[in-house]
Amino acid sequence: MNHDAYPDYYLADILRETKTIALVGASPNPERPSHRVMAFLLRKGYRVIPINPGHVGKSIQGQAVVGRLADIKEPIDMVDVFRAADALPALVDEILALETLPKAIWGQLSVRHDGAAAKAEAAGIKVVMDRCPAIEYPRLIG
């Protein structure tokens, strides 16, 4: 996949097929982009599971926070990543260790690591990087 430009259908298909999202790097701070994007995704009807090891047992946007992907007890369709790009390789390894793989990994704005993307894609996972679903959803779906 060319991660410099995505066909609209590729992004739209991911957004339409996704029901459950694990949001890595979720923040309880309303000023943080992850907080605002999580609110947007919830308003659009997605189930969003916030992941933040520093806030386990608390809630963000009314959703129970877990510490890591392996703590989620249900299949997830997409992992939305609000972490530094250099954290993506280790996160892909964590994703590949899950019993059920997600259909997609979505790296937020500035989150891009081509090696990590290639590894995920080799396992059959769709990858989007340096994009925001809260920008792409209104543009592609309405």
Results as ranks from 00 to 15, higher is better:
V92C: 14
E136H: 05
K19Q: 01
Y9C: 11
S27V: 03
G142I: 04
M38I: 06
L98R: 11
A70I: 13
N52P: 02
H3T: 15
S34H: 13
M78Y: 13
V81S: 06
T20D: 07
A84F: 08
M129W: 02
L109G: 05
G124E: 13
R16F: 03
G57K: 12
V79W: 06
L91P: 04
Q61G: 02
A5R: 14
P28H: 05
A104D: 00
E136N: 04
E31R: 11
L98S: 10
V92Q: 08
V111W: 10
L15W: 03
R36G: 08
I76M: 11
R112G: 05
V48G: 02
V37E: 12
D4W: 13
G107W: 02
K19W: 00
V128S: 09
E17T: 00
A26V: 01
L23M: 13
R16M: 03
G57E: 15
V111N: 09
R43I: 04
S59L: 09
G124S: 15
E121L: 09
A104M: 01
A122C: 09
P53L: 01
R139Q: 12
G115K: 12
N2F: 09
G115S: 05
G142S: 13
L91N: 08
R32K: 11
L23E: 11
G142R: 13
A118C: 14
N52M: 00
L98E: 13
R36C: 08
V128M: 15
D71K: 14
P50N: 06
Y46R: 10
E99C: 00
L69R: 13
R47G: 03
V79E: 03
I105D: 03
P50D: 06
D8S: 10
I21P: 08
E121H: 13
P50R: 07
L140R: 08
M38Q: 12
I135R: 15
G124W: 14
L23V: 07
R32Q: 09
L69H: 14
L140C: 05
S27L: 04
R43F: 09
A120N: 06
L96H: 15
H55N: 07
